[in-house]
């Protein structure tokens, strides 16, 4: 059920990016989709009553303690990859918004249906 809600969030972003005619709205739709995908990947690694994957000193004393920690920790691999994806989304956001600002300065509008003329 939480998977379905995050997929609903993705679909809302997809609708915004496909239907809306304002460039800033399209950028916001892409942002919503990125958030939804990150949320889904982190949810895949969640475990009920789990703990954050930070090793304590007491976990290293015996093999049984380490096995117990492995059986309650959440998955660290999606978290590491999502960390990379979040930072990259910031870079792509800066690039998209700078393109939007440039087009606004040139054409005086954010509406993509009015940007037709090829002015040199």
């Amino acid at each position: 059920m939480p998977y379905a809600l995050s997929f609903l969030l993705f679909v809302i972003g997809l609708y915004c990016a496909v239907v809306k005619k304002n460039m800033v709205k399209i950028v916001l739709g892409i942002l919503i989709m990125e958030c939804a995908v990150n949320l889904f990947l982190v949810m895949l690694g969640y475990r009920h009553e789990g703990v954050a994957p930070i090793v304590d000193r007491t976990h290293l004393e015996s093999k049984a303690a380490l096995d117990g920690f492995v059986s309650i920790a959440v998955d660290p691999l999606p978290q590491a990859l999502v960390l990379t994806a979040i930072v990259i989304s910031l870079g792509s956001l800066a690039l998209m918004i700078s393109i939007c600002i440039r087009i606004y300065e040139k054409y005086g509008t954010f509406d993509i249906t009015q940007i037709r003329r090829l002015r040199g």
Binding site: N38, Y46, V74, Q79, V82, I86
Partner: peptide
Amino acid sequence: FLRAPDIAITQIVV
């Protein structure tokens, strides 16, 4: 709440 404190901090900054 999904036990991912590193991502929570990064998400706030971003």
